[in-house]
Design a protein around this nucleic acid. Sequence first.
DNA 1: CGTGAAAGGGTTCACTC
DNA 2: GAGTGAACCCTTTCACG
Lengths: 153, 153
Amino acid sequence: MGNLDTIDLAIMRTLQDNGRISNADLAQRVGLSPSACSRRLDILEKNGTISGYHARLSNKALDYKMMVIVHISLSGQFAKTLAEFEAAVKLCPNVLVCYLMSGEYDYILRVAAKDLEDYEHIHRDWLSALPHVVKINSSFALREIIDRPNVGL
Amino acid sequence: MGNLDTIDLAIMRTLQDNGRISNADLAQRVGLSPSACSRRLDILEKNGTISGYHARLSNKALDYKMMVIVHISLSGQFAKTLAEFEAAVKLCPNVLVCYLMSGEYDYILRVAAKDLEDYEHIHRDWLSALPHVVKINSSFALREIIDRPNVGL
DNA sequence: CGTGAAAGGGTTCACTC
DNA sequence: GAGTGAACCCTTTCACG
């Protein structure tokens, strides 16, 4: 996790947008020889600075046309209550993101659904069924403005 | 964007978690010859079902320890108002996600910050400075429970 | 860090079924 | 659609400058 220099940042910037580029092309882009580039990449991966590579699937192509932001409150804040909720929410494949929050609601979720009917099912069969839930508030996304995997470097 | 069969789904499932796997290994995992696998992958990429490959960077390694959910209201809903806000918000590198929403607030944002002081700067110099903003509500994430790039297949 | 070289694989064709 | 084989290219790793 040592210090990142300009070239490390260039490698990361390239791989953010082009995760499947070959090492030879990557080396050329950042101005390194293939062997030096491969060595650096190896370090970045092994020390966890680059934690993985993921294909992004088109929600449209998969017919997921809706994105819903869900705020959830539980009946308490005991560790056991939270742990049971969290274990259950992880099983729902439609939940892309879930954070424990400060403030009015305990959790915020980002949920993908095919359409409104699909979301009704998810709401009834998954979200309402999560343990200790006392309040659910769904807001629907009208349009996606930004969706980046990482902070801009 | 044609129909996806079991093998296509297996390819996508593999590439979601292992975006830099070689075509040869991918072929073996899904039970195809390398050439057949490469042809299918090519189709999935070209028709947009797979829209890209992204390295995931460790927020910890980059020193981004805070995640903030920000609700924002604008002074109106005219197309020009929204367009000006959206153009401006896209320039902030700390904003990972931004959706136009139905409901009480107009936009919801996911913002990464290094620490509380860093967030104060982002709030003052970026968020408060966005055009037409009349209300900002920041909630801080205490813990990440789920953060998947895609819906579970 | 770069170079060069060698070994081992990977990718991409045309071709066949 | 899928598999095969061959040519070509890429990756990885090494010793060395």
